[in-house]
Amino acid sequence: MTLGGCAALMILFWDWRVALAGLLCVQSGLLALGVTLYDLPVHWAGLQLTVMTLTLLMLIITALQVQRPRARRQAGNWLVRLLAIVLFVLAWRVLGEGPPLPEFGSSVTALLLWLAFCTLLLLGLSDSPLFTAVALLLWMSMAQLIVAVLTPAPNLFVLIAGAELLISLAGSRLMLLDQEPLHARDLIATDIVFPYEEDMYADDDFGADDERAIDAGLPPLLIQDAIAALEGERPRVAPSSPPRNGHGVPADAPTDQRERMRG
């Protein structure tokens, strides 16, 4: 019940902190379930615990590095997500039980089906790399429990753990890439090229710090940086400004633009 509730909260709140905390709860709960109900060997549990810690650490560190880990592709409001959950519960009640899972009691089967539904809902509601990675890891932790109970082969367990680490690593990389600006703006061809404001700070980077600065009656950080530069201080480094070549043109700018600048 608690594990199911954690999974539901991940969907309802749709926040990276809740998602990762929920993932931790569900994975730990499934691990505890394996140890208490199905005599999962302690060293297997230790391995799973280590992998779980590493995957979560990777995702947390990445989420902290990116400025707005709460995805731009927001998955509707909480009411829509609540309705989706209620709809599934009703459908489950009407249609009855799911496929037969050997060796698992009815309550654990119900829990696994519920977690499977939550995973599919997480995947269906957003294409953000964070939530996709969380959903895939949720699914993989169910696979770990199934391996522990149905196919107790340590090598298989290790193989799935390796796949989990790779998924987490891939998710972290895409989260970092997702924050970079998509398009380089055209620049004016002069001897000294001044970058547009958007090039210095992508739209999404006008973040909470800037908002707080405005609320406090201060200019946004970009202007504060300019003042600091005039006063001889080192300005804040733009986190998303593309690397530039010797002509002041973004290195990833289209070929024609580079040609024009050199010409």
Binding site: A133, L136, L174, L177, D178, P181
Partner: peptide, 16 residues
């Protein structure tokens, strides 16, 4: 993985 390819993680869906 590339800029703007955040949804590429979904190639993992079928095997997972």
């Amino acid at each position: 993985s590339n800029r703007g390819s955040a949804t590429v993680l979904r190639i993992l869906l079928p095997p997972v």
